[in-house]
């Protein structure tokens, strides 16, 4: 069986030598089981050592190798070349993020937003170690498990035109993770998180394009998390209007 040949058009941006990103084409032969990340590593090792990109685990759990593949946000470790062959493949850095170099984007903004929603279990008062673990039933685990699968790969931000147009939008993954901790029976941090996600930059900016959910490699469904938070927040608001004497 003869090896197949494919052309990859890869974004290059070297700030010390150019003002705007350009595109470089690489032609390569590939075995059937290669993914886009394999091809990038082949280019870096054997063709052009200057190509820069992020990657780590090669198995869809580290969340580092997200890029635009033919205009769609993908984990490049899970995008098989054979699925694109014989067409060319365009590989670009995740869209809506600033580019630092070649395929590497600046994720500082995302990290700030992630931190803002306190993505850890918050307790009003920690119980003494001697009293043991915080127990949880399988049903309580099932309530939030789906939303805990997020690997912070940022594909959902790249699929979100709202984030593109309003960079202050807290965004799909951060809100889904806020939802994950809010649903956790051991957590008591809901009020502080609500300050962030019920703000103008939070859930209200979302127009339910729904692509965050479509591109998520872990089936987290941020669109669902955001809509449910909107319903819950609006219901609470209506209750506080109709029964202002009730619990704040």
């Amino acid at each position: 069986m003869s090896a197949k040949k494919i052309t990859m058009r890869v974004t290059r941006y070297r700030p010390e030598q150019e003002d705007a990103p350009t595109e470089q084409a690489y032609e390569l032969e590939f075995p059937d089981d290669w993914v886009v990340l394999d091809a990038l590593n082949y280019i870096k090792d054997d063709v052009d050592g200057t190509l820069t990109f992020r990657w780590s685990c090669r198995m869809g759990i580290c969340g580092s190798c997200g890029m635009m593949v033919n205009g769609e946000p993908k984990l490049t470790c899970a995008a098989f070349l054979r699925d694109y062959y014989p067409a060319e493949i365009r590989v670009e850095p995740l869209q809506y993020f600033p580019i630092i170099r070649d395929l590497v984007i600046d994720m500082t903004d995302f990290l700030h937003k992630l931190k803002a929603i306190t993505p850890w279990i918050v307790r009003d008062e920690e119980k003494p170690l001697a009293e043991g673990e915080y127990l949880q039933t399988p049903a309580q685990l099932a309530d939030y498990k789906q939303f805990s699968m997020c690997i912070n790969c940022m594909l959902c931000y790249s699929a979100c035109p709202v984030y593109g147009h309003e960079p202050e939008f807290i965004g799909p993954a951060a809100i889904a993770l806020a939802h994950r901790y809010n649903l956790d029976s051991r957590d008591e941090g809901q009020e502080a998180r609500q300050q962030v996600i019920a703000s103008s930059e939070g859930i209200w900016d979302c127009t339910l394009v729904g692509e965050c959910t479509e591109v998520c490699p872990k089936r987290v469904d941020p669109a669902m998390a955001i809509q449910r938070t909107k319903v819950a927040t609006t219901t609470e608001w209506a209750k506080s209007m109709l029964m202002p004497w009730g619990k704040q």
Binding site: Y13, P15, A20, P21, G71, Q95, Y96, P98, I99, I100, D106, P161, G164, H165, V209, E211, E214
Partner: peptide, 17 residues
């Protein structure tokens, strides 16, 4: 860093959008 401009036609380029 380089900020890519978003074309006004972003919603015409993809069926989903």
């Amino acid at each position: 860093t380089y900020h890519r401009p978003i074309p006004a036609t972003w919603w015409l380029r993809d069926r989903k959008y």
